[in-house]
Protein backbone atom coordinates (compact mmCIF):
# COMPACT_ATOMS: atom_id res chain seq x y z
CA UNK A 1 0.00 0.00 0.00
CA UNK A 2 1.60 3.30 -1.08
CA UNK A 3 2.21 5.94 1.55
CA UNK A 4 -0.27 8.69 0.65
CA UNK A 5 1.53 11.25 2.79
CA UNK A 6 4.74 10.72 0.93
CA UNK A 7 2.95 10.76 -2.43
CA UNK A 8 1.37 14.07 -1.56
CA UNK A 9 4.74 15.51 -0.63
CA UNK A 10 6.32 14.36 -3.87
CA UNK A 11 3.49 15.63 -6.08
CA UNK A 12 3.18 18.96 -4.26
CA UNK A 13 6.95 19.54 -4.19
CA UNK A 14 7.22 18.76 -7.89
CA UNK A 15 4.42 21.14 -8.90
CA UNK A 16 5.62 23.88 -6.59
CA UNK A 17 9.18 23.51 -7.90
CA UNK A 18 7.91 23.87 -11.47
CA UNK A 19 5.54 26.75 -10.78
CA UNK A 20 7.61 29.26 -12.72
CA UNK A 21 7.97 26.96 -15.69
CA UNK A 22 4.21 26.34 -15.77
CA UNK A 23 3.49 30.03 -15.52
CA UNK A 24 5.97 30.72 -18.34
CA UNK A 25 4.19 28.16 -20.52
CA UNK A 26 0.87 29.72 -19.60
CA UNK A 27 2.08 33.23 -20.39
CA UNK A 28 2.69 32.09 -23.97
CA UNK A 29 -0.86 30.92 -24.59
CA UNK A 30 -2.95 31.67 -21.51
CA UNK A 31 -3.09 34.18 -18.70
CA UNK A 32 0.20 33.39 -16.99
CA UNK A 33 -1.23 32.07 -13.77
CA UNK A 34 -1.21 28.29 -14.06
CA UNK A 35 2.00 27.75 -12.07
CA UNK A 36 0.99 30.16 -9.33
CA UNK A 37 -2.48 28.67 -9.19
CA UNK A 38 -1.21 25.09 -8.89
CA UNK A 39 1.34 26.21 -6.30
CA UNK A 40 -1.35 27.89 -4.23
CA UNK A 41 -3.56 24.82 -4.55
CA UNK A 42 -0.93 22.31 -3.51
CA UNK A 43 0.38 24.51 -0.72
CA UNK A 44 -3.15 24.48 0.63
CA UNK A 45 -3.24 20.68 0.26
CA UNK A 46 0.03 20.39 2.19
CA UNK A 47 -1.29 22.73 4.87
CA UNK A 48 -4.28 20.42 5.31
CA UNK A 49 -2.20 17.24 5.14
CA UNK A 50 -2.91 16.04 8.66
CA UNK A 51 -6.65 16.13 8.08
CA UNK A 52 -6.35 14.58 4.66
CA UNK A 53 -4.19 11.68 5.85
CA UNK A 54 -6.58 10.92 8.69
CA UNK A 55 -9.11 9.78 6.08
CA UNK A 56 -9.29 6.54 4.10
CA UNK A 57 -7.88 6.86 0.56
CA UNK A 58 -11.17 7.62 -1.27
CA UNK A 59 -12.12 10.33 1.24
CA UNK A 60 -8.57 11.71 1.24
CA UNK A 61 -8.64 12.07 -2.56
CA UNK A 62 -12.00 13.83 -2.39
CA UNK A 63 -10.60 16.21 0.23
CA UNK A 64 -7.60 16.97 -1.99
CA UNK A 65 -9.96 17.65 -4.88
CA UNK A 66 -12.11 19.94 -2.78
CA UNK A 67 -9.07 21.88 -1.58
CA UNK A 68 -7.92 22.37 -5.16
CA UNK A 69 -11.40 23.55 -6.17
CA UNK A 70 -11.48 26.08 -3.37
CA UNK A 71 -7.91 27.35 -3.56
CA UNK A 72 -6.56 27.24 -7.09
CA UNK A 73 -8.55 30.18 -8.42
CA UNK A 74 -8.33 29.46 -12.15
CA UNK A 75 -10.07 26.98 -14.39
CA UNK A 76 -7.47 24.38 -13.38
CA UNK A 77 -9.00 24.32 -9.86
CA UNK A 78 -12.30 22.76 -10.88
CA UNK A 79 -10.55 20.63 -13.50
CA UNK A 80 -7.92 19.08 -11.21
CA UNK A 81 -10.45 19.17 -8.38
CA UNK A 82 -12.85 17.12 -10.46
CA UNK A 83 -10.03 14.72 -11.35
CA UNK A 84 -9.20 14.03 -7.69
CA UNK A 85 -12.80 13.97 -6.51
CA UNK A 86 -13.72 11.45 -9.18
CA UNK A 87 -10.70 9.31 -8.33
CA UNK A 88 -11.90 9.38 -4.72
CA UNK A 89 -15.35 8.35 -5.80
CA UNK A 90 -14.12 5.50 -8.01
CA UNK A 91 -11.19 4.02 -6.09
CA UNK A 92 -11.57 1.44 -3.34
CA UNK A 93 -9.53 1.89 -0.15
CA UNK A 94 -6.94 -0.67 -1.36
CA UNK A 95 -6.79 -0.20 -5.13
CA UNK A 96 -5.18 -2.56 -7.63
CA UNK A 97 -3.62 -1.38 -10.89
CA UNK A 98 -6.84 -2.34 -12.68
CA UNK A 99 -8.81 -0.23 -10.18
CA UNK A 100 -6.47 2.68 -10.82
CA UNK A 101 -6.89 2.36 -14.60
CA UNK A 102 -10.67 2.25 -14.34
CA UNK A 103 -10.82 5.14 -11.86
CA UNK A 104 -8.50 7.30 -13.95
CA UNK A 105 -10.60 6.61 -17.04
CA UNK A 106 -13.71 7.72 -15.16
CA UNK A 107 -11.88 10.78 -13.83
CA UNK A 108 -10.70 11.73 -17.33
CA UNK A 109 -14.31 11.55 -18.53
CA UNK A 110 -15.39 13.77 -15.64
CA UNK A 111 -12.69 16.34 -16.48
CA UNK A 112 -13.77 16.22 -20.12
CA UNK A 113 -17.33 17.02 -19.09
CA UNK A 114 -16.25 19.75 -16.67
CA UNK A 115 -14.05 21.46 -19.24
CA UNK A 116 -16.40 20.71 -22.17
CA UNK A 117 -13.26 19.60 -23.96
CA UNK A 118 -12.15 16.57 -25.91
CA UNK A 119 -8.90 14.81 -26.72
CA UNK A 120 -6.56 16.59 -29.15
CA UNK A 121 -7.84 19.98 -27.98
CA UNK A 122 -4.38 20.76 -26.53
CA UNK A 123 -5.29 20.27 -22.87
CA UNK A 124 -4.37 18.17 -19.83
CA UNK A 125 -6.65 15.48 -21.29
CA UNK A 126 -4.04 14.77 -23.94
CA UNK A 127 -1.74 13.45 -21.21
CA UNK A 128 -4.27 11.97 -18.80
CA UNK A 129 -6.35 10.14 -21.42
CA UNK A 130 -3.46 8.16 -22.96
CA UNK A 131 -2.07 7.37 -19.50
CA UNK A 132 -5.46 6.00 -18.39
CA UNK A 133 -5.66 3.82 -21.51
CA UNK A 134 -2.07 2.65 -21.04
CA UNK A 135 -2.72 1.64 -17.41
CA UNK A 136 -5.70 -0.35 -18.63
CA UNK A 137 -3.78 -2.52 -21.08
CA UNK A 138 -1.86 -4.26 -18.29
CA UNK A 139 1.67 -3.85 -19.64
CA UNK A 140 2.43 -0.54 -17.91
CA UNK A 141 5.69 -0.04 -16.04
CA UNK A 142 6.78 3.08 -14.16
CA UNK A 143 9.15 3.87 -17.00
CA UNK A 144 6.57 3.36 -19.72
CA UNK A 145 4.06 5.57 -17.89
CA UNK A 146 6.63 8.32 -17.33
CA UNK A 147 7.71 8.17 -20.97
CA UNK A 148 4.15 8.22 -22.23
CA UNK A 149 3.24 11.22 -20.05
CA UNK A 150 6.32 13.05 -21.29
CA UNK A 151 5.67 12.23 -24.96
CA UNK A 152 2.00 13.18 -24.78
CA UNK A 153 2.84 16.53 -23.15
CA UNK A 154 5.39 17.15 -25.92
CA UNK A 155 2.75 16.17 -28.45
CA UNK A 156 0.60 19.16 -27.41
CA UNK A 157 3.27 21.54 -28.80
CA UNK A 158 2.14 21.36 -32.44
CA UNK A 159 -1.56 21.17 -31.56
CA UNK A 160 -3.92 24.06 -32.06
CA UNK A 161 -5.87 24.98 -28.95
CA UNK A 162 -9.65 24.87 -29.23
CA UNK A 163 -10.51 25.09 -25.55
CA UNK A 164 -9.75 27.56 -22.83
CA UNK A 165 -8.11 30.92 -23.14
CA UNK A 166 -5.49 29.54 -25.50
CA UNK A 167 -8.21 28.97 -28.08
CA UNK A 168 -8.50 32.74 -28.64
CA UNK A 169 -5.03 32.56 -30.14
CA UNK A 170 -6.07 30.05 -32.79
CA UNK A 171 -3.10 29.25 -35.02
CA UNK A 172 -0.77 31.20 -32.75
CA UNK A 173 -1.29 28.61 -29.99
CA UNK A 174 0.71 26.20 -32.17
CA UNK A 175 4.32 25.76 -31.09
CA UNK A 176 3.78 26.02 -27.34
CA UNK A 177 3.32 23.18 -24.90
CA UNK A 178 0.00 23.27 -23.10
CA UNK A 179 0.63 24.18 -19.45
CA UNK A 180 -2.12 21.86 -18.23
CA UNK A 181 -0.61 18.96 -20.17
CA UNK A 182 2.76 19.78 -18.60
CA UNK A 183 1.33 19.95 -15.05
CA UNK A 184 -0.42 16.61 -15.65
CA UNK A 185 2.87 15.13 -16.84
CA UNK A 186 4.63 16.46 -13.72
CA UNK A 187 1.94 15.00 -11.50
CA UNK A 188 2.03 11.57 -13.14
CA UNK A 189 5.82 11.46 -13.12
CA UNK A 190 5.87 12.43 -9.45
CA UNK A 191 3.36 9.69 -8.61
CA UNK A 192 5.48 7.11 -10.48
CA UNK A 193 8.60 8.30 -8.67
CA UNK A 194 6.85 8.18 -5.31
CA UNK A 195 5.42 4.71 -5.92
CA UNK A 196 8.69 3.34 -7.23
CA UNK A 197 10.76 4.52 -4.26
CA UNK A 198 8.26 2.84 -2.06
CA UNK A 199 8.06 -0.33 -4.08
Amino acid sequence: MPDLGKMLDVVAERLIAHAEELTALDSAIGDADHGLNMKRGFEAVLADKVNILAKPLPEALKAIGMTLVMKVGGASGPLYGTLFMTLGKELPAEPSLADAARALTAAVEAVKARGKADFDNKTMLDVLGPVARHLGNGSATFDSVRKLAHDRAEATVPMKAIKGRASFLGERSIGHMDPGARSSELMITAICDGLEDKG
Binding site: D33, N37, V69, M70, K71, V72, G73, G74, P78
Partner: peptide, 13 residues
Amino acid sequence: GGNPDGGLGTDVA
Protein backbone atom coordinates in the same frame (compact mmCIF):
# COMPACT_ATOMS: atom_id res chain seq x y z
CA GLY B 1 -13.98 38.67 -8.43
CA GLY B 2 -10.42 37.60 -7.80
CA ASN B 3 -8.71 34.40 -6.78
CA PRO B 4 -8.29 33.33 -3.14
CA ASP B 5 -5.14 35.52 -2.90
CA GLY B 6 -6.90 38.57 -4.29
CA GLY B 7 -5.18 38.39 -7.69
CA LEU B 8 -6.98 37.96 -10.99
CA GLY B 9 -9.05 34.79 -11.07
CA THR B 10 -12.17 33.38 -9.54
CA ASP B 11 -12.84 31.64 -6.27
CA VAL B 12 -15.48 28.98 -5.75
CA ALA B 13 -15.95 29.97 -2.09
